[in-house]
Amino acid sequence: MKKTVPRFNLLACLFGALVCSPDAEAYLGGFEEQDGYRIPLNGQIASGAFAGDAQFYFSNNPVGGFTGVVPWGAYPNNFSDGTNGPDVTRYNAGQFGTNNGGPGGAAADIADNTGLWQALSGGRLNEDANAPYYYGSQFARDSIVAYRNTMPHGGSQTLNLQASDQNLSYLYSLDSRDLGGIDPASTTAALIQMSFWVKPSDWDDPDTGNLFGLSLMDAANKPVFEVGYTGDNWLEYRLNGGAWQLTPYQMGSAGYSEITVMLNTADNTAGLAVNAYNDNSSLLSGNVDVLTNQGLGVASGALTGLQWDLRGGSLDNGAVSYIHSFDDFNFAVTPVPEPGCPVLLLVAAGLWCWPRRRR
């Protein structure tokens, strides 16, 4: 017997596919001023002198008093460095700007770790340990900052991770602006595509172990899927906190590679693709599927955050920890349909082939 789909359900599914499948770029976005990321070239951020907020002496001299501005990067007492923004946990990073329906406004000091970004270990926490004095250098930072990059993937700024002295771990809480107006807590049954561009460091190439990991976190603050790479830039992934799985895809360090993750929170599967930059040809190798419909082994729940983990300090085989640059995050979210919604099924099935936005 031929089964018909009620017209109401079909139209409802079509409407849902149209309004709930955004290609969003904001809050993370391209880490531009309009995305909510400030660097000194765009003006200083006045310190609010919040209780517990680390402050540093200007020029490391108590006579000069405190800097009076939110310390940026890991060199908080040098006003001559206009390329590194403040650590993203020190100000309202990602919470101002106009891109993707942003509220506008301006960069402002907040109590550390009270915004979308939190330092869990290392990074700013390491730099703050000796406040109000600072014992680092302009080129040895422990932080995550927006950076005025001369070779970005798009725009003029990138997100730079550096763990000069020790490992760092930061948590970013996704916002509805990331997902085109969809509340992250409502993504318990959705197809979520996340893509971003990365240029790894070549200073750490002698270290062949896992160096960087980006974990997709659920509402229970547990990782449901992790993607990363080794010191010599081989793409890796990890399931359910197990061992890192090495792939045969190596990303160059002279240009940006695109990584795409597809998470299905309804059937607890994930996909992974890479468009790797080839240092020899100076070209992208083309998009390749690494995983499709890979079982996660856990109930994923809603996607609510991203955890950034970077090894630092003394690396293996004499490798030197240095800067890793990220740019142009994009998200697309499609709710997984209830039975009887064939149009939305087609939309969901085609989401993996959704054209990636290029700047």
Score class of each variant (00 low, 15 high):
T188N: 09
Y229H: 14
W244H: 13
L283W: 04
W197S: 07
W197Y: 15
S215V: 06
G65S: 05
V63Q: 08
K2V: 13
N221C: 01
L171F: 10
V336Q: 03
Q294N: 10
A332E: 04
L246E: 06
N61T: 06
W354F: 14
I182N: 09
F66H: 05
D309E: 12
P76R: 00
D205Q: 14
V88S: 05
Y229L: 09
F79W: 03
N9A: 12
L291P: 15
T208F: 10
L303W: 15
E127R: 12
T83P: 00
A131H: 10
N160A: 06
W234D: 02
G94V: 03
G313D: 02
E25D: 10
E338Q: 13
A119L: 01
Q166P: 03
Q44I: 08
N275H: 09
S169L: 13
R90A: 15
A270L: 03
L211A: 10
G295K: 11
F96C: 00
L214T: 06
S176E: 14
G43A: 06
T269W: 11
L161K: 07
F15K: 14
C341P: 00
Y249L: 09
R238F: 13
G73W: 09
T98C: 00
G271K: 06
F8W: 10
G252T: 08
G305T: 09
T269S: 14
Q118L: 12
P152N: 02
N99T: 14
L306N: 03
F56Q: 01
Q118M: 11
A270K: 10
T334F: 05
L315A: 00
S201W: 01
G102Q: 01
R7G: 05
S257W: 11
G43R: 01
V198C: 12
V288F: 01
L116P: 00
A189R: 13
L344H: 02
M1N: 09
Q162S: 02
A332C: 14
A93V: 03
T247L: 07
C20W: 00
S321D: 14
Q95H: 08
A49Y: 15
Y91E: 02
L120W: 04
I45Y: 01
L291H: 04
W244R: 14
N210I: 10
D279N: 14
K222Y: 02
V298W: 10
V298P: 03
N100A: 15
E127F: 10
T269Q: 15
G318D: 03
E258K: 13
D142P: 05
W308H: 08
V145F: 10
F58S: 06
D204T: 08
V63I: 13
Q44P: 12
T269N: 11
S321I: 01
N100I: 00
D112Y: 08
S282M: 04
Q307D: 09
L246P: 01
E236T: 13
P200N: 09
N233D: 15
F50V: 04
G104Y: 05
L168K: 06
F15A: 15
W354T: 12
L303D: 08
N268I: 03
